[in-house]
């Protein structure tokens, strides 16, 4: 499969703390990648660097935009914001939806920011919400939804602009196991199910097991990679990395 995002030997430090110490990886179109590791291992920093939220101290992050590779780490903030609006999607632990807006408005807002008209934005938002089983709940405010429903609204928001890749930071961290499973199904269906990619940070082995690739991190490095083998569900291939 074609690689759509690439990181080469990236390093990031916060003061004297080394958050990432020379990490390299490729993300392929249509794959789901889980990042696991203890707190402080650098997984959220890696997610933020890949998504262009942060820039590395050294190394390269490149994005394959319709066959042309572009250096994300060299883009100005305005261009990276545009990239995040148009090509990337985000799902956070608490959803971080805007409480005073309705579910429909929260999803439509992602398009309106990009200059799409409100009627068009709402039409697409309505479709995404319906695809995630939220039909009839469009006009509810976020506080009137359950945790799982709110996370599905966040997924709809992440995918309303047909993002090529969705970054999710602990998307099931605040949910019970049953709801967590439902949300993962929705998240995978809205991303890899549509040929898009998913990169998620999680502490939950069950969640990670549903991804096609798992990277374990420690002290700012990737220490282990596990791939599932599509032809043989349930069988995985694990390699140590240094």
């Amino acid at each position: 499969m074609a690689s759509i995002l690439s990181a080469r030997d990236i390093r990031k430090t916060y003061g004297s703390t080394v958050a990432l110490d020379g990490v390299s990886l490729e993300i392929e179109a249509g794959e789901s990648l889980a990042l696991m590791g203890p707190s402080g291992s650098g997984k959220t920093t890696l997610l933020h660097l890949l998504a262009g939220i942060l820039t590395p101290d050294s190394g390269e992050v490149s994005w394959n935009e319709h066959g042309a590779w572009q250096r994300v780490d060299q883009m100005k903030e305005a261009r990276r914001s545009q990239l995040r609006r148009e090509s990337f999607g985000f799902v956070f632990q608490q959803g971080l939806l805007i409480p005073e807006l309705t579910a429909l408005e929260n999803v439509a807002l992602a398009l309106m920011i990009d200059g799409v008209s409100r009627p068009q934005s709402e039409q697409r938002a309505r479709q995404k919400l319906a695809a995630l089983g939220l039909e009839g709940l469009e006009d509810r405010r976020i506080g009137q939804l359950s945790g799982g429903q709110a996370q599905r609204v966040a997924i709809a928001r992440a995918q309303v602009a047909d993002a090529e890749i969705v970054f999710a930071d602990e998307p099931t961290g605040a949910l019970d196991s049953h709801t967590s499973e439902e949300v993962m199904t929705a998240l995978l269906g809205a991303t890899t199910g549509q040929g898009r990619s998913l990169v998620l940070v999680t502490h939950d082995e069950t969640v990670a097991a549903r991804c096609s690739r798992l990277l374990r991190m420690r002290d700012g490095r990737i220490v282990q990679q596990t791939r599932s083998i599509p032809e043989h569900p349930g069988i995985t291939y694990t390699e140590a990395r240094s």
Partner: peptide
């Protein structure tokens, strides 16, 4: 604060 930070992650320009 957290909401604004995350809206920034989503690509919402500060001017908006």
């Amino acid at each position: 604060g957290d909401l604004y930070v995350n809206l920034g992650y989503l690509g919402m320009p500060r001017r908006i």
